[in-house]
Nucleic acid binder design. Structure first.
Lengths: 179, 179
DNA sequence: GACATATACTTGAGTAGTCAAGGAGGTGGC
DNA sequence: GCCACCTCCTTGACTACTCAAGTATATGTC
């Protein structure tokens, strides 16, 4: 068992070591903490724009985006949870307000009475198209070309994918997903 | 005003463009969503190890880490909030349990009765040393050398810093890392 | 065809944060 | 020395999740 979660609590005799011991090579812990920080900043920017213009959070948007990419614009809640990296109850709770405002509807499955599909409504699809426009602007702004070359973006994306467990599944996409 | 938050809700006449329009060049929105996903996965791993071994969350750990790096092992709550990217009330709430379990103490400021310093206790310092050992292991595991060259780590760190607004302030440091 | 077990979903209670409002203390103008 | 205003911190009410438990339905075994 080399899994850190199973290691003893006791540090080595040397005692509490400081961070960043080797200045040549970036401390992995430092990198991980930077990741957390960067994400918080990014989420804030998306939330600000999306909630200001469309009244939804980044989580709402991501949920709708996943639905829009699923065949028939609908998914089982379990699969949505898997795709979003949430628990089933997180999905139940996240869908509730979207159902209330009519962006998503609940559909029964013909062959399995346990499942309740979450389906994008026509309104939901329209509104998502608008949100997508906003989200793309925020993203473009975040990776503004004066600071970010397209290579940098690609590199970051690649490195993040290596960390992220499952990919967020944003497919390369056909001529038009939403229109 | 080129700020996306002030743009009209209406997408351009062309209508909602699909994701990944140009397959050659990574979609910035896709990259941003990957960032969110990767962070969630990373936080989960830290939380699992830290809470399993030391009974604290990654947020708790980060808070203690910042305190330990401050002169005198103490900081004003406002500065802590700034450093952590939280609001003042988030800090108040985050400190409460750490005070209860004796890792942090509250200290009055001599010259300003409004401020309540948060100070690392000797116990807090000891426990933090243990947590740091665990956290370094998790980070090392996350960026395991069979997948990650130290260059990759450095690159990721650099790219994230460009996104992250303020850096998490993990200073370089003196001898001995883990063993 | 009944029972054990597994799956899909919801719900109650708890955690970690937010924002808005408010108390207590400092500061500068006059 | 008083008043307006600013800063530091806490609190109440809310959001967005988590986990554990519960309900309803499906499935496989005998």
């Amino acid at each position: 068992m080399t899994d850190p979660t199973t290691d003893p609590t006791t540090p080595p005799a040397a005692g509490p070591a400081p961070l960043g011991t080797d200045p040549l090579d970036t401390d992995p812990l430092d990198t991980a903490l930077r990741l957390v920080r960067a994400q918080a900043a990014v989420v804030k920017r998306f939330d600000a724009s999306l909630s200001g213009l469309h009244g939804v959070s980044l989580s709402d948007f991501t949920l709708l985006l996943h639905l829009s990419q699923a065949p028939g614009g609908r998914m089982r809640r379990v699969d949505l949870a898997e795709a979003l990296g949430l628990t089933a109850s997180g999905v139940t709770r996240g869908l509730a307000p979207l159902e209330r405002i009519g962006l998503v509807s609940r559909e029964a499955a013909a062959r399995d009475a346990r499942v309740a599909y979450a389906a994008l409504t026509p309104t939901g699809r329209e509104r998502l198209a608008e949100m997508l426009y906003t989200a793309r602007q925020v993203a473009a702004d975040l990776f503004a070309p004066d600071q970010w070359s397209s290579e940098d973006g690609t590199r970051l994306s690649t490195l993040l994918t290596r960390l992220g467990g499952t990919a967020p599944s944003v497919p390369p996409a056909p001529p038009h997903v939403l229109g």
